[in-house]
Design a protein around this nucleic acid. Structure first.
Lengths: 121, 121
DNA sequence: CCAATATCTCAACATTAATTGAGGCGTGGA
DNA sequence: TCCACGCCTCAATTAATGTTGAGATATTGG
């Protein structure tokens, strides 16, 4: 991942509505969810505002859209999130792995839990 | 981590100079580096601009400073980065661990390399 | 104490981003 | 075909953010 992409991604994530959308989509899984459902989940977000932020996220590479009938379904772009994390933490150790392994275990606690009950620290 | 903190952190990371500073500090390790060295590493960044961005990062919780003689030494706050990653990816799987495990291995490739030669994908 | 170095603070200006409301386009059912 | 629904686009307004330059503060050595 290049710096420009990372800046776009972090810029996209630095806005309340967009951060909520991304986290919603991350939790929604690869299936994604329609724009209307996103708006409903967020509460009070006008159609145009939602649309603005969704297209912003799509342009930043963090979300993608597909049409399903008259609905437009958005989903998270997981590889972009992985790349972003890697970009941020690149060269993080310099001989001190203990400083960044917490990040790994934090992430692992979400995906590797066997019960489906994720760690919310 | 709460949403407000995450927004501040992402906002801090969404600016070119600040993103470079954070990555520099991440790579610098827990020792950190003095403000002057950061400015030099970045090239063309005026004193006041650098100071503005450093204090912005500190306020966002991503960097901390300590005085060492007449130098002020900045370092990355690794736990904040871990929390941020976890906050973003929370509930990421929903039965599809394969979508987020790449993020884990991306991060692991940095910290677990035995040679000290990190993965630059 | 004085000078030099390193860094911070402040205020004005320039730039960029977010919200709102009106209106348009594509889709599916009557 | 026509209407209703879901969502997008555009332009204007308002708000937030970054840059610059001048000056202030803290530390060390002479």
């Amino acid at each position: 991942m290049e710096e420009k992409q990372a800046l776009d991604a972090f810029g996209a994530l630095s806005q309340e509505t967009r951060l909520r959308i991304v986290r919603l989509l991350v939790a929604a899984g690869p299936e994604g969810m329609p724009a209307g459902a996103i708006g409903e989940a967020l509460g009070g977000a006008s159609s145009s505002r939602l649309s603005f932020h969704l297209s912003h996220l799509e342009h930043a590479g963090l979300a993608r859209s597909r049409r399903g009938g008259r609905l437009i379904i958005y989903s998270a772009v997981y590889p972009a999130l992985s790349s972003l994390i890697q970009f941020l933490m690149r060269d993080c150790c310099q001989g001190h792995p203990e400083v960044c392994t917490p990040a790994i275990s934090a992430l692992s606690s979400c995906c590797l839990s066997t019960t489906g009950e994720n760690a919310h620290a």
